[in-house]
Every structure is written in structure tokens, then in C-alpha cells.
């Protein structure tokens, strides 16, 4: 479904991604772990064209996209829904309009279809009654759910999560994590989760990749990771809540 071939991304003198090669088969839940500033978010943003790689190729669903124009990328962004680290809701719109926003832009749908899709997306994130509220009136955890519903309403084939649980308390973390698994399976999406929470990764990932300084230092199934001898992986394992 998704392939990175020797992707290099630089910011000024700093090289963030160093010839990164990565294959993600359809339907997989992949966790990418690493410390702050190792290029995890950059990786997601290059995938949806918010940033462009300096070298290398990115293949999505059989298309090489790294040289796509902004217009061509619109099609890719229909397929790849990104959930941002912050909820990034539009403050001046109701929850309903926030969720409907992408639908109105990407597709020409009859209003009834939009309404039903918004309601089913809100129901999927367990917020069936919030549609008339403003983002400022609901808790941070709920805002994160709305932002998930907004992405989900587009029915993407790929879901991308940028640190979905960073800064949340353990209970909200667990519920967001559970939601990611539930939705990925229910809508059979390919999901890539960028995170630094090993606990979450072990509990729902099909495969985990450990990124350090723009390179992959370890990858494998959760069971493989638990036995890994790579020092950075062991440090992350020490944080796991049992």
C-alpha cells in the first residue's frame, strides 16, 4: 500500500530522514516509535505532501507521488486521512461542521448523505450527541475524538496518526488507543501511528518500527520487540505499564 524508497528530507543543514526505506502492506497497523526530534512527524507529513522529500520515492497505492502537484495531491489526501497531534479543530465551526468540512470539499455529496456520514463518524468515535457543540465547549479528549471523526468521515484507506496520545492522562490514552484499533479493524484501513508510547504499541500494533536519528534501528512484531537487544528499544520497554 505504502512504500518509502530511500527518502531523504533535510531542513537547512540538518538531515532529518536519512535514506529511509519502508514498506507498509494494506490493512496493517504500524507503530513508529522514537524519541522527540527523530523525524517521526516529518515522515507522516511527507507522506501526505505537507512536506516534500529532497530525495527518494514515495509510492502510495501504486503511484509515485513525491513529484505530484498540490492539485494531484488532493486525490492522495482523500485516500490518506491524517489525524494531527493537536485536535486542530476550526474554532468557529460547530462539531458537525468540523466533521463535514472535508466531505464538503472533497466530494460533491447531497446534504442528506453528508449528514448521515457525519453522524455515523461521530457515532464511531462514541460522540453521538456532540454535533451541535462548539469545540471550545468540550474537553480535550473529546476534541481529539472529533478530529478523528473528521478524518474518518472521508472514509480514507489509510489513517495516519501523529502522536495521538502524547500529553494525555493514562485513561484517555487507553481509550484513544482502543479507538484506533477498533476503527482500523472496523473500516479495514492501513494505519500508521507515530508515537512514543510503547505500551500502546505493544497492545495494538501488528508491527513496530523504532526510529533513531532518521534511521530505522529495529523493526518487528510486538513479540519481537519485547525480546529486542537494541538499547533504545530496551529503554522504551522499561516504560511499559503492566
Amino acid at each position: 500500500m505504502i512504500q518509502f524508497e530511500k527518502v531523504v528530507k533535510r531542513f537547512g543543514p540538518r538531515t532529518i530522514l536519512k535514506e529511509l526505506t519502508l514498506h507498509v502492506p494494506a490493512g496493517e497497523i504500524l507503530f513508529i516509535l522514537g524519541t522527540s526530534g527523530t523525524g517521526k512527524s516529518v515522515l507522516l507529513k511527507t507522506l501526505v505532501g505537507l512536506l516534500r522529500p529532497d530525495e527518494g520515492e514515495i509510492w502510495i497505492d501504486g503511484q509515485e507521488v513525491s513529484k505530484f502537484s498540490e492539485i494531484e495531491y488532493l486525490g492522495i489526501r482523500k485516500k490518506c486521512g491524517m489525524v494531527f497531534q493537536q485536535p486542530a479543530l476550526f474554532d468557529s465551526l460547530t462539531v458537525f461542521e468540523n466533521v463535514a468540512f472535508g466531505l464538503r470539499r472533497h466530494y460533491r455529496l447531497p446534504e442528506a448523505e453528508i449528514v448521515s456520514r457525519v453522524h455515523s463518524s461521530l457515532a464511531a468515535v462514541h460522540l453521538p450527541d456532540a454535533s451541535e457543540k462548539m469545540p471550545g465547549e468540550i474537553s480535550y479528549g473529546m476534541q481529539k475524538r472529533v478530529s478523528l471523526a473528521r478524518t474518518l468521515a472521508l472514509r480514507p484507506q489509510v489513517l495516519l496518526f501523529d502522536e495521538p496520545t502524547t500529553g494525555l492522562d493514562p485513561i484517555t490514552t487507553a481509550s484513544v488507543n482502543l479507538l484506533i484499533e477498533e476503527l482500523s479493524r472496523q473500516f479495514s484501513t492501513t494505519s500508521i501511528v507515530v508515537s512514543h508510547d510503547m505500551t500502546c504499541a505493544l497492545s495494538i500494533a501488528d508491527r513496530i518500527i523504532m526510529l533513531d536519528q532518521g534511521r530505522i534501528v529495529e523493526e518487528g512484531s510486538p513479540d519481537h520487540m519485547k525480546r529486542s537487544q537494541v538499547p533504545l528499544v530496551k529503554e522504551f520497554l522499561a516504560e511499559v505499564v503492566t
Partner: peptide, 14 residues
């Protein structure tokens, strides 16, 4: 800075 502009691009709007 709250990534709303990125979100708009990802939701298919300019």
C-alpha cells in the same frame, strides 16, 4: 501553529 492550516490541506481544501 495549531496545525489547523495543515488540517485544511489534508481535508482537501486550499
Amino acid at each position: 501553529v495549531t496545525e489547523q492550516l495543515d488540517a485544511i490541506r489534508c481535508l482537501g481544501a486550499d
